[in-house]
């Protein structure tokens, strides 16, 4: 009876794909935000750069990252497919825009999603691409193990062969790509800060609907735990996370 391809090509199957990729992206946001909190550390970006290196060079994480990229792509393409099919289901629209009691964001996930997609492209071109293509500057940190004091200095390409971290005479030396600098430089441009903040607003609205909606799609809508899902969806995903992300460009713009 069951046939995976027919199951996934049904309206419910397509919803399921949206829901699973969406939830996976939500889980990524938590990791991404937690990591990015290193930006707020006053260590000239040591922790942040270490984190960036770890994320790009640890094999299991690399595997997950490919999952992530494909999730973004599938989530986007499926959204377009579903939207087109849904349009076909109503060839003539109403003369009067329906007042249907639904919330705005739920009806405009496509617009919000498009904003987010553009954001992701810009964001990845700004940082991910530059980092992977070796356009980032380099930095060397020297931390006195006894006192814990860290000194840093920019180094140029010829002084950097690969990411290293070693102890030399009681001093922890770390040579790394300086993504931190890249980031803090980028956010000296006020228009980019505004763009990021707006994108995070879009994320907030996207998730206020998307998170709880995913549970509805999975069929997990029960009066006992529905309030909890709504609470998490609202406070964690549509307020906490976007606020945390938006704080970063603002912080770097104002204080660095």
């Amino acid at each position: 009876m069951s046939n995976f391809s027919s199951a996934f090509s049904s309206t419910l199957g397509r919803k399921l794909v949206m829901c699973l990729t969406g939830l996976f992206l939500c889980s990524f946001l938590i990791v991404h935000l937690a990591g990015n909190f290193q930006l707020f550390k006053n260590d000239d970006g040591l922790a942040f750069n270490q984190y960036a290196h770890f994320m790009t060079h640890f094999t299991p994480i690399k595997v997950v990252s490919y999952l992530l990229y494909s999730s973004i792509i599938i989530h986007t393409i499926w959204a377009i497919v579903i939207t087109l099919m849904n349009r076909k289901a109503r060839p003539i629209s109403y003369a009067i825009k329906p007042k249907d009691g639904s919330i705005w964001s739920s009806r405009n996930m496509g617009i919000l999603g498009t904003i987010l997609f553009v954001f992701i492209v810009v964001h990845m071109a700004n940082f991910w691409y530059k980092y992977h293509s070796g356009e980032t500057p380099y930095i060397e940190y020297r931390t006195d193990i006894n006192s814990g004091a860290t000194m840093s200095k920019s180094i140029n390409e010829s002084e950097f062969t690969e990411y290293v971290s070693f102890v030399d005479n009681g001093v922890q030396v770390t040579k790394s790509e300086d993504l931190y600098k890249e980031v803090s430089n980028a956010f000296q441009q006020w228009w980019l800060v505004i763009f990021y903040v707006l994108a995070m607003a879009a994320l907030a609205f996207h998730l206020v609907h998307g998170f709880q909606s995913a549970f509805q799609t999975l069929g997990w809508n029960h009066h006992k735990y529905r309030p909890l899902i709504k609470f998490i969806g609202l406070w964690v995903f549509s307020i906490g996370i976007p606020l945390g992300f938006a704080a970063m460009p603002i912080y770097l713009f104002l204080f660095k």
Binding site: S6, S10, T11, L12, R14, K15, I82, M85, N86, K88, A89, R90, P98, D100, G101, S102, I103, S106, R107, M109, H209, S213, Q216, T217
Partner: peptide
């Protein structure tokens, strides 16, 4: 029933809950 619903050309649910309201 779900597959028949799809065959009829109805759209898919995006959880706006307008149906419940109306």
């Amino acid at each position: 029933m779900v597959l028949q619903m799809d065959d009829e050309g109805f759209g898919s649910c995006t959880n706006t809950y307008a149906c419940e309201a109306q």
